[in-house]
């Protein structure tokens, strides 16, 4: 531990350095320079001489450290004085040659993929409401992808989720919903999670379909959760994402794992609900943005949660699809071509 003495000493030296810098900046002629030299280096009352006097008061073990500090100051003063002398002697500076209006340096910083960017934007809204983020496997079993979600074997509802199979029982998950099951199996309510991830469908690539895309699903399970809460939370989310003024509509739909189920539409941003020929909304003025509903009691039974005690809601949306709508991107395939001219634009987001 340096003694208080040494610390005061260091502070004094720092103060001298500041003084030296301030005064140097004002030197305009040799006379002022001589005065400055005298002030700092005079044998009799120069600051350095005073410091060397003070050195004697230090204990022997601190003397070398204190001495080094004084030496460093002395060197700095001398360098500074020499530089000032050179400056005063120097002939008038020639006019600068460099054109200061030339462009500055460019430093390139990488950018996140737009899907990731949009995913985080969505995640952050839910994180602010106390949701956690989880994920599960992309290669799933038939049980988690379908059966546990209340799709009986041989039910035509499975046709709506055109599936890529690996074996009879293994498939590429067609939605992020199996993660709901996995989470509810290991975690007791209250549950509040969002589940982003890749999903797969047997869709031939075209501007609005790809065999792999991104979904984000949300799940809330607790006592006393109602459809009114589903509406409240999703409206809050959509207004954060698309702005306070956006019009939102909930309408009945069907998903095997929710009952009642709701499709959520927002007003078409492309035409403002004004163009009967609009390609984005088909002239309806509404754009389907997510599917949702109250968790089906059978799903709760499948994970040993008592549907009489707990209720919950879930929703799912396509991250890439929603980003397409939000930014007016016409072709989903752009996301996976990875053209850097496309990706880098989103740095400005």
């Amino acid at each position: 531990m340096p003694s208080p003495n040494l610390r005061t000493f260091q502070n004094t030296i720092d103060a001298y350095k500041t003084k030296l810098a301030e005064q140097s900046a004002q030197i305009q002629d040799p006379k002022a320079l001589d005065e400055l030299r005298h002030q700092f280096l005079s044998r009799k009352r120069g600051y350095v001489t005073i410091l060397l006097e003070e050195l004697k008061t230090f204990a022997p073990e601190e003397k070398p450290t204190a001495g080094q500090l004084v030496n460093a100051l002395k060197n700095e003063i001398q360098e500074r004085l020499e530089a000032l002398e050179a400056r005063l002697k120097a002939p008038a500076k020639p006019k600068r040659e460099i054109d200061l209006t030339l462009p500055g340096e460019k430093r390139y910083r990488g950018v996140p993929h737009p899907i990731r960017l949009f995913q985080r934007e969505i995640e952050d809204i839910f994180l602010s409401m106390g949701f956690s983020v989880e994920d599960g496997p992309e290669i799933e079993t038939d049980y988690y992808n379908f059966e546990a979600l209340n799709f009986p074997p041989h039910h035509p509802a499975r046709d709506d989720w055109d599936t890529l199979y690996i074996t009879d029982k293994l498939l590429l998950r067609t939605h992020t919903s199996p993660v709901q099951i996995r989470v509810m199996e290991k975690q007791k309510p209250p549950i509040r999670i969002v589940l982003p991830g890749k999903v797969f469908r047997r869709d031939v690539p075209d501007p609005t379909h790809l065999p792999m895309f991104f979904q984000l699903e949300g799940l809330v399970v607790d006592e006393g959760i109602t459809f009114a809460h589903l509406k409240g939370t999703l409206e809050f989310f959509l207004k954060r994402l698309f702005g306070d003024k956006i019009k939102i509509r909930f309408r009945p739909s069907f998903f095997p794992f929710t009952e009642p189920s709701a499709e959520v539409d927002i007003e078409c941003l492309a035409c403002g609900a004004k163009d009967p020929e609009c390609r984005i909304c088909g002239g309806t003025g509404w754009k389907e943005i997510l599917g949702s509903g109250m968790v089906d009691p059978q799903v709760f039974k499948n994970v040993n949660i008592d549907p009489e005690k707990y209720s919950g809601w879930a929703f799912g949306l396509g991250i890439d699809r929603t980003a397409m709508f939000a930014y007016g991107i016409s072709d989903m395939r752009y996301f996976f071509e990875n053209d850097l001219r496309f990706i880098r634009q989103f740095d400005l987001k």
Partner: peptide, 12 residues
Amino acid sequence: FHFGFDEVINQS
């Protein structure tokens, strides 16, 4: 990103 790498996402 700081090292100038851009993120890509490819189909699986």
